[in-house]
Computed example of a mutant assay.
Amino acid sequence: MPHYPAGTEVIGIDLCPVMLERARPRAATSPAAVTLVESSATELPYADARFDTVVCVLALCCMPDDRAAVREMHRALRPGGRLLLLDHIPGSRFPVRVVQRLAVPALRLLSSAYHLCRPLRLVERAGFTVVRRERYRLGMVERLVAVKESAHG
């Protein structure tokens, strides 16, 4: 939150009240106007085309219905709006993917819905145009910048 400039309206959403409580001190010292809301990412309590930008960091991998969450992000973005997404994905090398698959059961103890998602596919299927894609950490982390096309093309 310290990276958002003054004058920016930020709405932070989490399903877990404990995580929202952890975020409150940072929200209070942010230069941006931050509102924290308890909500599911699959049913955002906002009108269609409400947001200029949606930021989703290391969260899709913990959502039981990541497809519905990405569709909801698309719905909530205005035409021409941007989705900034960073998440864990299956690694780019076979040995890395094997280790990841072996680690998933342990990670599910921390987050019952943990899985290795494929955000690129989800984003494209939801109707976004990916304008930038980068992979890090042996291909295990992917960053996407995608745009919701405007009504005029």
Rank of each mutant, 00 (worst) to 15 (best):
T8L: 11
L122C: 01
P45T: 06
M73Y: 04
R50D: 07
R135Y: 06
E142M: 11
A103Y: 11
D52P: 04
D48W: 03
P90C: 11
M73R: 02
A126R: 00
S150W: 03
R121F: 00
C61T: 03
Y136H: 13
V141W: 07
L77Q: 06
H115D: 08
A6P: 05
V34H: 11
P79T: 03
R121W: 01
G80I: 06
R82S: 15
A41C: 09
L36W: 10
G139F: 07
Y4A: 13
A47Y: 00
S39Q: 12
I89T: 11
C56P: 05
G7Q: 12
R135H: 11
A126S: 01
L84Q: 08
R71T: 03
C16K: 13
R143I: 09
V34Y: 11
E21C: 12
R133Y: 07
F94W: 15
R78A: 03
G81M: 02
H88S: 14
Y46T: 08
V131C: 08
R71Q: 03
S92R: 13
R82N: 12
V104N: 10
G81Q: 01
P105T: 10
R50K: 10
P17I: 12
A23E: 13
S111A: 11
T129F: 00
D65V: 00
R26G: 15
L109K: 12
R93N: 05
R67H: 05
V70N: 02
H88L: 12
P5F: 05
D48V: 06
G7K: 14
F94A: 06
R143M: 14
L20M: 13
S111R: 11
A27T: 11
P90I: 10
R108A: 10
L107I: 10
H115V: 03
A151S: 05
V37N: 13
L110C: 09
E43G: 08
Y46F: 15
P31G: 04
H3L: 09
S92E: 14
R26M: 14
R125M: 02
R101I: 06
R82A: 15
R71M: 00
D48G: 02
T42N: 07
A146I: 03
P105M: 08
R135L: 06
P105I: 10
